[in-house]
Amino acid sequence: MVEGVIKRNGRYEVNPAIMKKVEKSIIKGMSEEDVKTVIVLRNEYLRWMHDNFAKKIIKPPKNNQ
């Protein structure tokens, strides 16, 4: 398996653990509170992605095959 990828619910995804790091060069100018907010938003977004898209596979329409 590619480094940094895990299998969850039978599907591959980027290991959330590696997204915990925050590179200082990017957060220059952002307050600690803003950084924390971004991290919360990231988790909320990932939750939303799983809720909406992770439990089904959308197949292409037949006329495209």
Binding site: M19, K21, V22, E23, S25, I26, I27, M30, V38, L41, R42, Y45
Partner: peptide, 17 residues
């Protein structure tokens, strides 16, 4: 700002928010 992967996944892409 919050949908942009550059913001949400700091350090993974273009090194900016």
């Amino acid at each position: 700002e919050i949908r942009c992967p550059n913001t949400l996944f700091m350090a993974d892409f273009y090194k900016t928010a």
